[in-house]
Design a protein around this nucleic acid. Sequence first.
DNA 1: CGATTCCTTGACAGGCATCAAGAAACGTGG
DNA 2: CCACGTTTCTTGATGCCTGTCAAGGAATCG
Lengths: 244, 244
Amino acid sequence: MATSCFADRLAKHVPLSDAEKKALTRLEENPRKVRRGAMIQRVNEMVTELFVLREGRVMSFVILPDGSRQILRVYFPGDFIGSASTIYSRAPESLVALSDAIICPFDKHALRRLLEEYPRVAALLFLLSNAERVALTDRLASLGRTSAKARVASFLLDIFDRLRVTDDSITDSFDLKLTQEEIGDAIGLTSVHVNRMIRQMEQEGLISRANGRITLRDMARLEEIGHYTNRHKDMDLDWLPGME
Amino acid sequence: MATSCFADRLAKHVPLSDAEKKALTRLEENPRKVRRGAMIQRVNEMVTELFVLREGRVMSFVILPDGSRQILRVYFPGDFIGSASTIYSRAPESLVALSDAIICPFDKHALRRLLEEYPRVAALLFLLSNAERVALTDRLASLGRTSAKARVASFLLDIFDRLRVTDDSITDSFDLKLTQEEIGDAIGLTSVHVNRMIRQMEQEGLISRANGRITLRDMARLEEIGHYTNRHKDMDLDWLPGME
DNA sequence: CGATTCCTTGACAGGCATCAAGAAACGTGG
DNA sequence: CCACGTTTCTTGATGCCTGTCAAGGAATCG
């Protein structure tokens, strides 16, 4: 059976039945290519669609009245995007493609049917949205209580570990594919200061860079500096409803 | 039928069947009193329990290695607490009672049965956890991109609007029941600077205070200063699975 | 290969933290 | 119900971390 990106991702956490996989695959029936920089969803627009990201990278963000931007989340292939708009009729955040990407839009009502017919999938979605919640609180603590250097360190580690979930070939380096301005907008700094911190970490041998690729040279110290915890190691979904 | 605090809360969003209400009520079968300051859950502890808060106030937080604290969320009666630990075996955050409180602990497995038997409730929980997600991203933008004064303003408005969801008698004033240090720990400031901002807002006639009670005197300007959006107005759960 | 975006670096400024200390409010036990 | 210890609030002085402004260089894109 051809399974979807999203089904594969969920199946990494708990075994899924064929029927469940098939239902998840149906969410991805309408893939759509979008170009780097394309606006997928605009804040305050009426929304009836959600997305699964199949390829590329997408970010969610808000723009404040003074023009500054806060990036809320960076999404990778297999991620479920737009859950925020399940509960609001108007989008609370904008979505833009960070690279050329393939997104699979589906209607709220398709999600409704899925939740209705596959309670186990509903439970799983609930749990994964709680995992994302924890990711957000981690960054909240980072912004609220740590230095610029710590924020950069934990941000790099976070992206690194998230990429590694779906790509086993990654060992110590990865393509960040974010400008320093975007990094700053994600962790509450200016691009200028992000640059200073990255440069400093490079000089100290914590990381190195080569044409857009970041290599983590001293992960232990990076984790210490960033007060970073890898949350992916400690997941426990065994108590979920069993497969029939 | 005696309904629970939690069922009442959920029923504000969508009508619930009697069976659903009864199932939710069962989650609150074991109320437990806790004193102000009591630790309900310690970070990194093994967790198998979740909670419904019936009375009083509770906060979740983390302590960083340098001793600083980030308050992640303040909870009010009817809130579902500890969803973070649905997916992790060890608690990612600590829980402490901010006032004398009544909490209703229940086991992960009780939640499992609920999700299994009442898919509509599962869907509802999923949606509400997405609403909390949005609340967190709002605060993320606040910490990342706004001034101290803006953070205080939006924090006060947020607490105010959340209290009003369950208490219709509130018009323009409320008991904050948080020290200035706690406010600071929630919005990434020191207690000293929180004090300066509150004092300034008081002088400007934006708020006033009397024995622990805050009165919002100019809500329009507060919303403008804090770049605040009331999210409670725009909820739309009509597309949820229908009641049988 | 020209134009635009992105990176890099320096000088300077400002917002918020830190430290400190007294006043006020609160809680608790006698 | 008062007295006393503790917590919380308040205010000032000082300093640092990060922002702002600016400008040249590098890289990327069409």
